[in-house]
Amino acid sequence: NNDALSPAIRRLLAEWNLDASAIKGTGVGGRLTREDVEKHLAKA
């Protein structure tokens, strides 16, 4: 759900053309954090 994404995370996902549903969020309530996105990018 994009409503739970911060503007910074939305921008990062758009910049790298990533799908938020493909990344497991570790923040409060399962929210994506910058670290989650960076770890996903490191694996790719």
Rank of each mutant, 00 (worst) to 15 (best):
L32R: 01
A8Y: 13
A20H: 05
I9Y: 02
V28K: 11
E15G: 05
N2T: 13
D3P: 10
S6P: 11
D36F: 02
G29Y: 05
I9G: 00
L5M: 10
A20Q: 06
P7M: 14
T26S: 08
V37M: 03
L18Q: 03
D36V: 01
I23Y: 01
T26R: 02
K39S: 09
D3L: 11
I23F: 05
H40N: 02
L41M: 08
E35P: 05
E15I: 15
E35N: 08
D3T: 10
V28Q: 11
G29V: 03
G29H: 07
K39V: 07
D36K: 01
P7A: 14
L12A: 03
S21T: 11
T33R: 07
K39A: 14
L41V: 10
D19K: 07
S6K: 03
R31N: 07
N17R: 08
H40L: 11
T26M: 04
G27R: 01
L41E: 02
V28C: 11
T26F: 03
S21K: 10
K24M: 12
K43R: 13
L32P: 03
G25R: 06
E35C: 12
A4W: 15
R10Y: 06
S21I: 06
A4D: 14
A8M: 10
R34F: 15
T26L: 05
L12P: 00
T26P: 01
L12D: 00
A22T: 11
K39F: 09
V28F: 13
A22K: 12
A42Q: 13
I9T: 03
K24H: 09
P7E: 15
A42M: 12
R11Q: 14
D36A: 01
A22E: 15
G30E: 04
S6I: 05
D3H: 11
I9K: 00
G25S: 06
G27I: 02
A14T: 09
E15P: 00
G30L: 02
A44T: 14
S6Y: 04
L41Y: 09
K39N: 13
P7N: 11
N2E: 14
A44N: 12
A42T: 08
D3S: 10
L12K: 03
A4N: 14
D3M: 11
E38G: 04
L32N: 00
N1E: 14
R10P: 00
D3E: 13
I23H: 00
G27M: 03
G27L: 03
K39G: 08
N17D: 11
G27K: 01
E38H: 08
A14D: 14
L41I: 15
L13N: 00
A22N: 11
D19T: 08
V37H: 00
V37F: 03
K43V: 10
R31D: 05
A22F: 08
H40C: 05
S6A: 08
L5Y: 06
V28H: 09
E38M: 15
K24I: 14
T33H: 00
I23T: 01
S6D: 15
R11A: 14
G25N: 02
L18E: 03
T33K: 04
E35L: 11
G29R: 07
P7L: 14
G29T: 04
G27F: 04
A14Q: 11
A44K: 12
K24N: 09
E38P: 01
G30Q: 04
L18F: 04
E35F: 09
L12F: 06
E15W: 15
L41S: 02
G30V: 02
G30T: 03
T33E: 03
N2R: 11
L32I: 15
A22L: 14
G30W: 01
A44M: 15
A22R: 07
E15L: 15
K43H: 10
K43M: 15
A44E: 11
E38V: 14
A8T: 09
G25Q: 03
I9F: 04
A20L: 07
A8L: 11
V37S: 00
E38L: 15
R10M: 10
R34I: 15
A14E: 15
L12M: 09
P7Y: 06
D36Q: 01
G30M: 03
G27D: 03
S6E: 13
L41G: 03
A42I: 10
L32K: 00
R31Y: 07
A8P: 04
R10F: 06
V28T: 10
G29L: 07
L13D: 00
P7W: 07
A20S: 07
I23V: 07
L13P: 00
T26K: 02
V28R: 10
H40V: 10
G27Q: 02
N17Q: 09
S6H: 07
I23L: 07
L41D: 02
E35R: 13
S6R: 04
D19P: 07
A14W: 14
V28P: 15
R10C: 15
G30R: 03
K43F: 13
N17K: 09
T33Q: 04
A42R: 12
V28L: 12
S6F: 05
A4P: 12
L12Q: 03
L12E: 01
R11W: 13
N17T: 03
L41P: 01
E38N: 06
D19M: 08
L18K: 02
N1D: 15
A14Y: 11
A42K: 12
K39W: 11
I9M: 07
A14K: 12
N17S: 08
G29I: 03
I9N: 00
R34T: 09
N17W: 04
V37R: 00
T33P: 00
G29W: 05
G30F: 01
T33G: 01
R11D: 12
E35M: 10
A44V: 15
G30S: 04
L41N: 03
T26D: 02
L13H: 00
R10W: 06
R11N: 10
L5N: 05
L32Q: 00
A44S: 12
V28M: 10
A22Y: 08
L13G: 00
R10Q: 11
D36G: 00
R34Q: 12
N2A: 13
A14G: 05
R11M: 09
G27S: 03
N2L: 12
R31P: 03
E35H: 09
